[in-house]
């Protein structure tokens, strides 16, 4: 059961790249870790570190200014590619609580929701404006999920939030338990399921 979240407040870091795929967020070699914790070290691994393990100066999140950022402002199609939920866990472990972008990969978006990493879609202009602000000054955003607004010094932006997402964040749910309220419908479908749709190993399958 995940705890409800009503407000996210924190420093924003601009990630001015489009089409950031989940292979970049967490490379495949770190998918072998059997856990959700500790993945932050490997988040954006190839962009963050040199081969000798030192930090790469050219990667924005390595800039001391953004080390404590908890909100990422990224380009369009953030999180495309692989379905690996580890991408979400890695971002969260890094301290990221919200990603703002013009659009997201579909599976990444759902995975984020399930783990309560907030994804907010804003227009390309709004994203660009926030990125520029975050580059110029210390940009602190206050995201209010009840009012659907982002507040910062000098402005307010309202955003759309799917009702599903909103409910989830404000209530914090054990989704499986909720779904099981529909157990009768599930059972009814199963009773009516034609037998020809069931997989049966009819032939000698183990050589």
């Amino acid at each position: 059961m995940l705890e409800p979240i009503k407000v996210i407040e924190g420093k924003a870091a601009p990630l001015r790249l489009e089409n950031v795929d989940t292979d970049q967020i967490i490379p495949a070699e770190f998918l072998k870790i059997l856990g959700k914790k500790g993945l932050g070290r490997y988040c954006f691994y190839r962009w963050r570190y040199n081969e000798d393990g030192s930090l790469r100066e050219d990667f924005i999140l390595n800039n001391p200014k953004y080390r404590d950022a908890s909100i990422l402002i990224a380009g369009k199609n953030f999180g495309i590619g692989s379905s690996r939920e580890n991408a979400v866990w890695a971002l969260q472990d890094l301290g990221i609580k919200c990603v703002i972008a013009p659009s997201f990969g579909d599976i990444f978006y759902v995975n984020s929701l399930k783990n309560m990493l907030l994804c907010i879609k804003l227009s390309e202009e709004q994203v660009k404006m926030l990125q520029e602000l975050a580059e110029r000054e210390n940009l602190i955003l206050r995201i209010d999920l009840e009012k659907n607004i982002i507040e910062y010094r000098g402005g307010v932006i309202s955003f759309d939030l799917d009702r599903v997402v909103k409910e989830r964040f404000l209530q914090g749910l054990d989704e499986i338990q909720l779904t099981l309220k529909h157990i009768e419908k599930i059972k009814k479908y199963e009773e009516g399921m034609p037998s020809f749709l069931l997989p049966k190993a009819r032939r000698f399958i183990h050589d």
């Binding site: 399930k114 989704e175 499986i176």
Partner: peptide, 22 residues
């Protein structure tokens, strides 16, 4: 549909998936 790990757990437990129709 390709799904994430949380959704996978949900399907294991309920044999169902919540989805908004694309």
């Amino acid at each position: 549909f390709g799904i994430g790990t949380s959704e996978g757990e949900h399907v294991f437990a309920t044999q169902t998936l919540w989805l908004k129709k694309p």
